Amino acid sequence: MPLTPSSEVFITCAVTGAGDSVVRSDKVPVTPVQIAEAAIEAAQAGAAIAHIHVRDPATGKAARDVQLYREVVDHIRASGVDLVLNLTGGMGGDMTMGPPEKPLPPIGSRTDMAGATERLAHVKALLPEICTIDCGSMNFGNGDTVMINTPDTLAEMARSIQALGVRPEIEIFEAGHLRLAEHLVQQGIIDDPVTVQLCMGIPWGIPDDLNSFMALLNNLPKSWIFSAFSIGRNQFPYAMLALLAGGNIRVGLEDNLWLKRGVLATNKDLVEQAVAIAHTANARILGPSEVRKKLKLTKRW
C-alpha cells in the first residue's frame, strides 16, 4: 500500500520494561521514584506518553505490585509535568515450562500466571489514560518461557479496560496477533480509535526486516493509529521507519540500552534522539494534550 510519512508524531518512552536489563546497565530505573523521575525527564525531553512497568526495588526483577505502581503514578502526577500514562497490562501471562522431557509442572519460580482481573488491578486502582494488552501468545526469548494470552482472556481484559474509561493499546508481536486484534475489533470489544504498537524483532516474534514490517503495514486497517519500534541497535532506524510509514515513535530503555556504541543511554537521551529524528523528517511532535485529543483519552488528574 502507498505510505505517507507522518507530518506530526507522538513519542512514547518505554521507561524500564520487565527484562533482565538491570544487570546490563545502571541507567535502568528500578525504584518507583527512579521510574517516575525517568518518565518525567522523558516528558521534558519531548515524550508525550510514558509506558510503565514496575520492578521489585530490592531485586530489580519485574513486579506487578499495585503499591509500586501507585508510588510511580502518584510521583508523576504530583510533579506537575503533563504526561500521558500508559501502564502495562502484560504482566501475569508468563509460563516457564520444565525441561523438554518433563515440561509439566511449570517452573513455579519463573512462572507468573494470573487471571484477567488480577492482571488489571493496578489499572482499576490508578486509572491511567492507556493500558497495553499483548495480543496473543508466543515463545518468548531463549529457553522454555511462553507468553500466554488466550483470546478469551484478551477479550475479558479489553472489555474491563474500556469499562474503566481507559484506552487499550494493542501490542502486536506477530502477524497472527494482528488477525486476533482485528477479530476483537470486529466483535465490538475494542472501540475506535484503535491504537496499536508494532513490536518488531522480539525473539521469537516477527523479525524486524523491512519485508516483515511491510507485511504488517499492508494488513493494518487504515483507520488504526500505530506506533512501531525495534530493539537494540535498530531502535533509532525504526523511529525513522515508523515516521516514514505514517506512524508514531517508541523509544526507551525497555527496548534498547545504548545511545551509541560503547555509550549507555538514559531514557532522556533516547527521547532526545527520537526528537532529532522527527525534526530531521520535518515532523511536528505532539504534546500530551494533543495526544489525548487524537486518541480520545480521558485525563484523570
Rank of each mutant, 00 (worst) to 15 (best):
L178R: 03
D191Q: 15
L126W: 06
I52P: 02
G136K: 07
A43D: 05
A245F: 11
L164D: 15
D20N: 07
R77Q: 08
L83F: 05
S7V: 03
D144M: 09
W258M: 05
C135L: 13
Q67E: 13
L259S: 07
V22C: 14
N256D: 02
E37W: 02
D208C: 15
T16E: 09
P151K: 15
L154E: 02
D152W: 14
I76S: 01
F236W: 00
P106C: 06
V263H: 14
G247C: 15
A63L: 10
K294N: 02
S227L: 06
H177M: 11
K102W: 00
A242D: 06
P2Y: 05
N256H: 05
W258S: 04
L184R: 04
E290N: 02
P2K: 07
F173G: 04
P221Y: 11
I189N: 07
L83P: 04
S109H: 12
H75G: 00
A121N: 14
P57W: 05
K260Y: 01
L87D: 05
P106Y: 12
S21H: 13
S109A: 14
L244A: 13
A125P: 12
P237V: 08
I107L: 11
M97I: 09
S230M: 04
R292I: 07
F213C: 10
V30R: 06
N219R: 15
T117I: 07
G19P: 01
T4D: 04
R77D: 02
I170G: 02
A158H: 13
I249N: 01
P32N: 04
A274D: 05
Y238H: 15
D144A: 09
A175N: 10
F10T: 01
P221V: 10
P5W: 09
N219D: 15
R110W: 13
E290C: 02
P32R: 05
L198M: 09
D255M: 10
I52A: 03
I130H: 09
T4V: 12
P151W: 10
N211Q: 08
G262E: 13
T195M: 06
G115F: 01
D112A: 11
L126D: 03
L126C: 03
R284K: 14
A215V: 00
S7E: 09
A63F: 10
F229A: 14
I52V: 06
K268S: 03
G60F: 12
A181V: 02
V196I: 15
L154Q: 10
E272Y: 08
I161P: 03
Q34W: 11
M113D: 13
A45M: 07
L87A: 03
V73S: 05
T88Y: 10
